[in-house]
Design a protein around this nucleic acid. Structure first.
Length: 883
RNA sequence: GGGGGAGUAGCCCAAUCGGCAGAGGCAGAGGACUUAAAAUCCUUCCAGUACGGGUUCGAGUCCCGUCUCCCCUACCA
């Protein structure tokens, strides 16, 4: 086999690894577990096994983690590197509705295909730890964790308006609905009140926010989570509704504001159109306008609302609220109450006080409807004689003419026109006002979160059943832990059972449960959302066969936390926030030993693909374009098209199938290319032209080990002797070891590959002369994380019987990293003018450096005055000269 | 509007603390081998780092301003 025959090499080693269970990872308690070794837990976000199979984007992250896993094994660590399936989900259920095929059947088929494809890439997962969220042995524990949440009072039922998607026959979470359309499939959705299970994630808002600081995560992800949690400090203020006579009545409403300091500048209030108080306070004259406005607002989608963003709209209710700062008779005491759709019922209290002098939105609204604007914050510190006293009312608003302004200023400054706060800087004014409100009983300081409780139920078949029973009198109880799992019943028809009745409602025998006392209970027919299984799978990997517990304490103590977690940025908020929430609950229950699950997070970049755009700017599918010399033209009409980089998508027909790459170049080339494209975190287009480059590197490697004659030896005889290698190659190898090792530590896989190419080029240049067995062996270890099949094959041919996977990483000698003579650039006034040569070992000696530099630049330095000499040891010498 | 990130050769990408702009690959050019082609090997061409200022002996790297692109988010009171 003189040629590099990747097909037979790769299948040989894949069979070997599977047969020998090379990557089986014993855990605490198992006989072959070595507790003295440090651990490394490297995890991929497990995939949803779709019917389409893998595409080249998946392996980008998987390759990166596999390289890390293999590297850490060479570093002598116990490496936990598992894979599994997030297999509940809508596509299998919809396929079932269309074809009658049970989702379990579809899922099993897809899982098999995914597993095959992953194994074909030579990924070193411990397949004994494979988990599947749809397996009753798995979801038994998902249900068990739900029970814990329920026991902690963190799961509750509520009748709330939720997004209902008629087409999908289910409720969706806010984040699964974009612009009124379902994220999956793009079907229209409407809001409806429904009984739902909620998880009280808001109870953990503060900790979920604070603990972000200690995570080694991308800034962008942390920023997104912070924004999603949306903590803001301010105050709640209660406003009484004014009677016709202007007195405060019993009726009131509460607003949340981050600017209590500006209460003196509040000139009106706005309620969300859906606010319950609107019906009660609307005056007869305004009734019709209010009704019309509310109906219009209700029918608007978020998209429509945001399109109309620029122009504020609203309607006066006819009622007034009392600003508690002002005495009766003061015109500023009565604030008209409007409704407007820029105030959202779902945030804060659904009502705001409006300070048009200090808030752009309020200002826009006030300008639109001619409401008074008062300045209460002055940007610059003002002199003592700043105007601060009311002086009569103007004709338009009955307000003081002095303080009417048209500008809006929302920055920090000094309070004006603000009674007892006059002259106080903004930041001090806030606590002062809060203190006043608390003292007077009008309000209190308060922290508000944007984060809302997690809508945790779905009207689907293909999800985890709740371990919940409903009694005849409306009571609710948990299914006892020993009766778990509550298995999914068999069904023939997976459609919703009624307008709002989930498919599980069809399983009558399953739904009804009679207890020992003859009492009839009904099972919960909602199921859990897809996020449930992925909230804790990283814990099940620790101890996947355990039938007594979700995980063993020893395993958890040893393996957690996850050292490196790699996945797409699309999970920045939802999955990662939900999983952190569950983990903290488990931590509080004493079930896990760390308060955060994922220590380091890396988002792999997207693998994009080329697409084409014609002169009209329309996208042209890739298979309708051909290359003509330097340019690309549409096959249809020969018109020139522009090549652009885009996401892979079916419609652009630019999706790259990994199977083709594998058959043409093999898994090692595929892995190498994925890793060589650029930094793991960067997005880059899949460029088929670049594949031969990395493939050639593997071929060159092959050729420096294996003679090319048809009847040649399986490996060069010179590599089977114990002769010393040449000093130059030894130095080159030490540089390579140092570079590959330090790059791997920081996932610099692309540059590590470049270093190996450099070394092999060096060996090739010498036609293998001076390449020793010891060098060949050490190089095999460096290569193994990237191209494990080829590395194992060469290692085997070097005469080893054991797998290469656990060989210790080679050492390098710092003294070997430098050449014998060191070239030092010599600058004159910062410009490169000459090169000096210094013997290795003396490059840090300033005197030697300077002397060598003077000699090298003698010509340039002749007859000029040297004002200064900058000599950086080992780096360069710069002469600063006059003129 | 807000937040995160990126602009280095025709292309993908490198460049520790500020210290020779180039490690590697693709593409291009020339050559060797070959009956020829493929494969392989050798040689070689190519930018002053988006733009404008500043600090410095010295700036791709630090500071200020501007532009372009990508991602996320969006009336959050």
């Amino acid at each position: 086999m003189p040629r590099y025959d990747f097909t037979s090499i790769e299948s040989r080693w894949q069979e070997f690894w599977q047969r020998e269970k090379t990557f089986r990872t014993p855990g605490p308690g198992e006989p072959d577990f070595d507790a003295s070794k440090p651990k490394y837990y490297v995890l991929d976000m497990f995939p949803y096994p779709s019917g389409a199979g893998l595409h080249v984007g998946h392996p980008k992250g998987y390759t990166a983690t596999d390289i890390m896993a293999r590297y850490q094994r060479h570093r002598g660590k116990n490496v936990l590197h598992p894979m599994g399936w997030d297999a509940f989900g809508l596509p299998a259920e919809q396929y079932a509705i269309q074809t009658g095929t049970h989702p379990a059947v579809t899922t099993a088929k897809n899982v098999d295909r995914f597993r095959e494809q992953l194994q074909a890439l030579g990924l070193s997962y411990d397949w004994d730890r494979e988990v599947n969220t749809t397996d009753p042995k798995y979801y038994r524990w998902t249900q068990w964790i739900f029970s814990k949440l329920y026991e902690q009072g963190l799961a509750y039922e509520a009748e709330i308006p939720v997004w209902w998607c008629e087409e999908l026959g289910t409720v969706l979470a806010n984040e699964e609905v974009i612009d009124g359309l379902s994220e999956r499939g793009g079907h229209p959705c409407v809001k409806r009140p429904l009984r739902q299970w909620m998880l009280k994630i808001t109870a953990y808002a503060e900790r979920l926010l604070a603990d972000l600081d200690k995570l080694d995560w991308p800034e962008s992800v942390k920023a997104m989570q912070r924004e999603w949690i949306g903590r803001s400090e301010g105050a709640e203020i209660e406003f009484a509704i004014a009677s016709d006579a202007g007195a405060a009545t019993e009726q009131n409403f509460t607003v949340f504001t981050t600017r209590p300091d500006t209460l003196f500048g509040a000139t009106f209030c706005v309620l969300a159109p859906e606010h319950p108080l609107v019906d009660q306070i609307t005056g007869a004259d305004q009734q019709e306008a209010v009704t019309v406005y509310r109906e219009a607002a209700a029918s608007k989608t978020d998209l429509q609302r945001s399109e109309l963003q620029k122009e504020k709209s609203g309607v006066f209710t006819g009622a007034y609220a009392v600003n508690p700062l002002f005495e009766e008779g003061d015109p500023r005491r009565l604030m008209p109450i409007w409704i407007a759709d820029y105030v959202l019922m779902s945030y804060g209290t659904g009502a705001i006080m409006c300070v048009p002098g200090g808030d752009q939105r309020d200002h826009d609204f006030a300008t639109e409807y001619g409401l008074p604007i008062v300045q209460v914050v002055a940007p610059e510190p003002l002199a003592v004689n700043a105007p601060s006293v009311d002086s009569g009312f103007d004709a338009t608003h009955g307000m003081s003419s002095v303080e009417m302004v048209t500008e809006c200023y929302s920055g920090p400054g000094v309070m004006v026109n603000s009674g007892f706060l006059d002259g106080t800087p903004t930041e001090e004014a806030k606590p002062k006002m809060i203190a006043w409100l608390e003292e007077q009983g009008y309000g209190r300081g308060r922290v508000n979160f944007r984060l809302r409780d997690w809508l945790f139920s779905r009207q689907r078949y293909w999800g985890e059943p709740f371990p919940i029973l409903h009694g005849p009198d409306g009571e609710t109880k948990l299914v006892p832990a020993e009766d778990l799992p509550v298995s999914l019943p068999e069904l023939d028809d997976f459609k919703p059972a009624g307008a709002l009745e989930p498919p599980l409602g069809r399983a009558k025998d399953w739904v009804e449960v009679v207890d020992a006392d003859g009492k009839v209970w009904r099972r919960e027919t909602n199921s859990m959302p897809q996020w449930a299984g992925s909230c804790w799978y990283y814990l099940r990997f620790l101890d996947p066969q355990n039938d007594e517990a979700a995980w063993g304490e020893k395993a958890e103590n040893y393996w957690m936390p996850v050292d490196l977690y790699v996945g797409g940025a699309e999970h920045a908020v939802l999955h990662l926030l939900y999983a952190r929430f569950w983990h903290k609950v488990l931590y509080d229950c004493g079930l896990v030993s760390t308060d955060e699950p994922f220590e380091k997070l890396v988002n792999q970049g997207m693998v994009q693909s080329y697409a084409f755009k014609n002169a009209q700017g329309a996208l042209v599918p890739a298979d309708e374009v051909e290359e003509q010399g330097e340019s690309f033209v549409a096959k249809a009409d020969g018109a020139e098209v522009e090549r652009i980089v885009a996401k892979m998508s079916k419609s652009l027909r630019n999706v790259i199938n990994p199977d083709e790459v594998l058959s043409e170049y093999g898994a090692d080339t595929m892995r190498l290319y994925e890793a060589f494209m650029g930094p793991v975190t960067a997005s880059a287009p899949w460029n088929p032209r670049d594949l031969p480059g990395v493939h050639r590197f593997l071929q060159r490697t092959w050729r420096v080990f294996v003679p090319q004659e048809d009847d040649g030896d399986p490996i060069y005889a010179s590599l089977l002797t114990n002769a010393d290698g040449s000093d130059e190659l030894e130095r080159a190898l030490h540089r390579c070891i140092e570079k590959v090792g330090s790059d791997l530590e920081q996932m610099g896989n692309n540059t590590a590959i470049a270093a190996m190419m450099e070394f092999i080029n060096e060996v090739t240049k010498r036609e293998g002369v001076g390449f020793s067995r010891s060098q060949a062996e050490r190089f095999c270890i460096l290569l193994e994380p990237f191209a494990p099949h080829l590395a194992e094959e060469l290692w085997d041919r070097l005469g080893h019987n054991e797998s290469l996977a656990y060989q210790p990483w080679p050492e390098f000698d710092a003294a070997m990293l430098v050449a014998e003579s060191i070239e030092i650039p010599v600058q004159v006034n910062g410009k490169l003018r000459a090169k000096a040569f210094v013997p290795a070992g003396q490059e840090k000696d300033r005197a030697v450096l300077e002397a060598a530099a003077r000699e090298a630049a003698a010509e340039q330095l002749e007859g000029v005055e040297i004002k200064k000499v900058v000599a950086v040891p080992g780096r360069l010498v710069n002469f600063v000269v006059a003129g």
